[in-house]
Design a protein around this nucleic acid. Structure first.
Lengths: 200, 200
DNA sequence: CCTACCGATCGGTAGG
DNA sequence: CCTACCGATCGGTAGG
């Protein structure tokens, strides 16, 4: 039996060190939801505390700073997104099917209201400069995933692929701003977006 | 000679009442630029004052409140955009040519750095609730302009026109976030967007 | 247009 | 996890 590699830090069992405690996880989920709904500046530590049932100051037992909290959430979201998208893409052949799988998976993640991975990829302008730099760096790496997907598309020659990829990513990120549960599903939205972006 | 109707308030000559003074206009331009670059919450009255060479409190001689200032700028931008787009569309026949003319004109306006009409159509979430309601109402009216343009397009039947229009407007609004002078011109960006959205 | 200020709110901390 | 607080910043105002 093969030993799993890099299993060292995945201990998420509750109640041990604070890093992976259930209480901390709960706070992160609350914060993610608030950041997604009200933006970085529109969410105060006191707001987060209120929904967690504690005062704002008490949160600092679990996190280092508001900045660090936001960065952690952002990176966790992109980590999970990268992994799940790569998996979904592997299951498809055909360039359009692969692109559709990637878009549907990303929207599934971004539009789920229960996980850490709610969208906060938008309000870069709301965030302090040093934070923004880190977000953009992580973000660029994530977007590279879509680079190869777009390269593989049979697009008409008058369409610039780097512009095309930019427009597509904008569309995917903006979805969280107009999505309303009960109307179009994440999968249906992905299908509509790909239908618009599809040329052959 | 026909008497002009509702001409009463259009006096924009400088130096008279404060409504249309050159100083006020100058302050509005500064505010528009800052709002566009740093967002609503990211722009303080003291920031605006600093660039205007006065203290923040002194601005209240020219404006009633930060909210009112933002709404005024937003409405002025949409007023000008509506007028110029309607004019540009009239000059074209063909549904795709008309759409392209509308997109190019909107981007021209949104990406111009010198006028009041810099983009601030994005950060609705950053703005206080009562302000947001007004912005959305005005905004809905503006977007109606694109409704008929999209109706006229010969789109494949599997594309939902209301989703299509939504995606297009998102794309146009998001442009201000990634546009950098000296690279693609507003007209070239409009052409690329319409190329992606073009089906027949 | 400035001085001088108001009440509110922010992120964060010490000490328990 | 709370009490009690810090310094900073915000939109806005009175009075000149």
């Amino acid at each position: 039996m093969l030993a799993p590699i890099a299993m060292t830090k995945i201990d998420l069992s509750p109640g041990q060190n604070d890093e992976g405690s259930a209480r901390r996880r709960q706070i992160l989920e609350i914060a993610a939801r608030l950041f997604a709904r009200k933006g970085y500046r529109g969410t105060s530590m006191r707001d987060i505390g209120e929904q967690a049932g504690v005062l704002g100051g008490s949160l600092y037992h679990h996190i280092k700073s508001k900045d660090a909290l936001f960065i952690e959430l952002h990176n966790a979201a992109l980590d999970e997104a990268e992994e799940r998208i790569a998996e979904a893409v592997r299951a498809q052949s055909g360039p359009w099917a692969r692109l559709l799988a990637a878009c549907a998976t990303l929207l599934d993640i971004q539009l789920a209201s229960d996980s850490l991975t709610t969208p906060m990829m938008n309000d870069f302008r709301e965030v302090p400069e040093p934070v923004r730099e880190q977000l953009i760096a992580r973000r660029d790496r994530f977007e590279g995933l879509f680079r190869s997907l777009v390269e593989a598309l049979p697009l008409p020659p008058h369409i610039d692929r780097s512009v095309y990829r930019n427009l597509l990513l904008i569309q995917l990120n903006a979805t969280a701003d107009w999505y309303r549960p009960g109307r179009l599903t994440p999968g249906e939205i992905a299908a509509q977006i790909v239908a618009v972006f599809r040329h052959e």
